[in-house]
Amino acid sequence: MSTEVDEPLPEPTPLGEGGDVSYGSLVWSPVPARRDLLAESVLAAVDALPPDVAKWIRVAEIDPDLADTAAMTQEYNVPLAASSNCVVVAGKRAGEERVAACVVRATTRADVNTSVRKLLDVRKASFWPTDRAVEASGMEYGGITPIGLPSEWRLLLDERVVSGPSIIGSGVRRSKLLLPGGVLTALPGAEVVEGLGRPVG
Rank of each mutant, 00 (worst) to 15 (best):
L66C: 07
P64V: 04
R58F: 03
L43Q: 01
E96G: 11
I62F: 06
I57F: 00
A67S: 13
L37G: 00
R34S: 03
A106W: 04
A94R: 14
V53Y: 04
A39P: 00
A90S: 15
T108Q: 12
C102V: 12
R35N: 00
L38A: 02
M72I: 09
E75V: 14
V53A: 01
A106F: 08
A101K: 06
G95Y: 13
C86I: 12
V46E: 00
V46D: 01
T108A: 15
R35S: 06
D68G: 09
K92Y: 15
A106I: 12
D68L: 11
P79Q: 13
R98A: 08
V88C: 15
D52I: 04
E96I: 14
T73R: 07
R34Q: 12
V42M: 09
V88S: 09
V104L: 12
A82S: 14
Y76F: 09
V87C: 14
M72A: 14
A70C: 13
D63T: 02
E97S: 15
V87K: 05
T108E: 06
G95L: 10
S41P: 06
V42C: 07
G91V: 09
A90K: 14
K55C: 08
P51F: 03
N77I: 13
N85T: 06
S84G: 15
R34P: 01
A100P: 11
P50Y: 05
D63W: 07
V103E: 08
G95S: 12
T108W: 02
V89I: 15
P79M: 08
V87G: 09
Y76P: 03
D68K: 08
A54W: 00
R58C: 03
L38R: 01
Y76I: 04
A44H: 04
V53E: 04
D65T: 07
D52S: 03
V103Q: 06
M72Y: 13
V104Y: 02
D65N: 11
E75H: 10
A101Y: 08
V103C: 13
A101F: 12
A45R: 00
V59L: 04
C102D: 01
T108R: 06
E40V: 10
S41Y: 04
D52T: 04
V46A: 00
A54S: 05
S41M: 02
L66E: 03
C86A: 13
D65L: 12
E96M: 10
K92S: 15
E40K: 05
R34H: 10
Q74L: 15
I57E: 00
L43F: 09
V78Q: 07
A90E: 15
V99N: 11
G91I: 04
W56P: 01
A71Y: 02
P79H: 09
T69E: 07
A101T: 12
R105D: 11
D36T: 11
V99G: 12
L38H: 05
W56C: 00
I62K: 02
V89Q: 06
S84H: 10
